[in-house]
Design a binder for these strands. Structure first.
Length: 469
RNA sequence: CGGGCUGUGGCGCAGUUUGGUAGCGCGCUGCGUUCGGGACGCAGAGGCCCCGGGUUCAAGUCCCGGCAGCCCGACCA
């Protein structure tokens, strides 16, 4: 049969392609209330893998998981001036419950700095209690005017870390550690998306933070996606919530706090970062299904060979799924392609007669014929090869679409289809406002070598300008 | 919240100009033939035509009023 595209090609209509993929790969759909999202089992299994990888890294960085309530007293939000101001337009507020009007309205958490701050204050008495390193996995609500599944929905899933430290240096070091060892490591090693790390401008900073660090990924259409953020909150929340401790100098001090988060938006980043016209492309280390095995014909010999291979691969710790569905071969192949499964093993009588089977990789569409006996040892190697190749490819693509420019006008031009990089002193707050008028924004500020700058006010900072999600 | 477009079986759409038995493709069910890149035949199921009013013998179609979605702009993980 002639190969026709199942998805709207990216080049034709990228947003449409994105929506097609959500449906065809069975990732998610709209919920009944505008802006809400139903995550389907396959989409959720990807999120669970993201959670597992990030959670392990958070724990390795010493933070412990806890859970704080969904409902927050409205008065809490109001205690930190910039924080309320930043969030009030997107708050969902409960005014009635139990059949009565509430004495004090309750806010559905848009983030938990405030409640957690209240309890940190309780738990922090001595410098010996510090640092206090907490994390929670939760849903949050930020009412959105223009929702896009996974990228911007009124309710989303995330992880939010909250920490308290004895001094600013320790807080800054920890936030930076999380940014590098949790977020950037996950993005690079698992998601295979090379992020631009840097700090946000005052305009783009989190409401109530003294510094916001970001990981900016480049999507298939050249737009930027903020994939994780880490904030230094200074003493702003400590002051508002009385997070104090008695130091080794026997004097009472205010803590310095941080917060950091990554959300289900990462699934959107995965889709747009690696997906192609044939569907999703999931990096092997992330993939909930790393290998799909399918029979070309439903025959006893074939079934036996599949059973053996399945057992071998599972024994090697590989996430395998055998496709035992009835449909035609072409249909089943296309389904696994849409879902982005990195490796497909096809076994048919013709292969088997020669003692071999076919291995196809999703990223390059390349197919190889391998002796049955070698399959189990070849697959793990191939998976790592694919993982590496995805990262290399993503780096090349990003570099290709990143342009060094030397004026605001050039940045406005170059930023339309990729990242524009230029000295921050040529932009500044005024230039930033000008960029905004052209649907562009300063994604982050970096040191001249790239990466998070040590001195936020250095005059040699470089900025990355792009359109963004 | 401004500008444009659209609401019709699960999905994508035609039908609306000119009112007159609700259609097509895909998907779904059954049977059979198939299966090396979205197979084919036959037989079926499935519709408050977004909602509420109005005009008319008769409304998917005309009129009034709502609501929802998509795309483009201002805000955001």
């Amino acid at each position: 049969m002639a190969k026709q595209s199942v998805l709207t090609p990216q080049a034709q209509d990228f947003p449409r392609w994105y929506q097609d993929i959500l449906a065809k790969a069975e990732l998610a759909e709209n919920g009944p209330v505008r802006g809400t999202m139903v995550i389907r089992p396959y989409g959720y299994s990807i999120w669970e893998r993201i959670q597992a990888e990030i959670d392990a890294r958070i724990k390795a960085a010493g933070a412990k998981n806890a859970y704080f309530p969904l409902f927050i007293p409205e008065s809490y939000l109001k205690r930190e001036a910039e924080h309320v101001e930043g969030f009030s337009p997107e708050l969902a507020v409960v005014t009635h419950a139990g059949g009565e009007e509430l004495a004090e309205p309750v806010v559905v958490r848009p983030t938990s700095e405030t409640v957690i701050g209240e309890y940190m204050a309780k738990w922090t008495q001595s410098y010996r209690d510090l640092p206090l390193l907490l994390n929670q996995w939760a849903n949050v609500v930020r009412w959105e005017l223009r929702p896009r599944l996974f990228l911007r929905t009124s309710e989303f899933l995330w992880q939010e870390g909250h920490t308290a430290h004895v001094d600013e240096a320790d807080a800054a070091a920890y936030a930076r550690r999380i940014h590098h060892d949790v977020y950037n490591d996950f993005l690079t090693e698992v998601l295979a998306i090379p992020a631009q790390l840097g700090i946000k401008t005052a305009r783009e900073r989190f409401a109530g933070a003294t510094n916001t660090m970001t990981c900016e990924g480049m999507m298939g259409d050249g737009k930027a996606l903020q994939m994780a953020t880490s904030h230094e909150l200074g003493q702003n929340f400590a002051r508002a919530f009385d997070i104090k401790f008695l130091g080794d100098d026997s004097v009472e001090h205010l803590c310095f706090t941080t917060s950091w988060g990554a959300s289900s938006r990462l699934v959107g980043g995965l889709i747009m970062g690696h997906g192609d016209d044939n569907g999703l492309v999931v990096p092997p280390r992330l993939a909930p299904v790393q290998v799909a095995i399918l029979a070309i014909r439903d025959e006893p010999d074939v079934a036996d060979a599949i059973d053996v291979l399945e057992a071998e691969l599972k024994g090697a710790g590989i996430r395998v799924e055998v496709d035992r569905r009835q449909g035609s071969f072409g249909r089943r192949v296309t389904d696994w392609e849409l879902k982005g499964v990195p490796v497909r093993v096809e076994i048919g009588p013709r292969d088997l007669a020669e003692g071999s089977l076919t291995i196809a990789r999703r990223d390059t569409s390349e197919k190889i014929t391998v002796p049955v006996a070698e399959a189990a040892s070849r697959v793990p190697v191939l998976l790592e090869e694919i993982q590496a190749s995805l990262l290399t490819g993503a780096i090349a693509k990003r570099d290709d679409r990143t342009t060094d420019v030397s004026s605001l006008a050039e940045a406005i031009e170059a930023g339309q289809h990729g990242f524009a990089r230029l000295p921050w002193r040529l932009v500044g707050p005024e230039g930033e406002a000008e960029l905004n008028k052209h649907t562009l924004s300063v994604r982050c500020l970096q040191s001249p070598e790239g990466g998070i700058p040590d001195d936020h006010d250095a005059d040699d900072l470089v900025c990355i300008v792009a359109r963004s999600y």
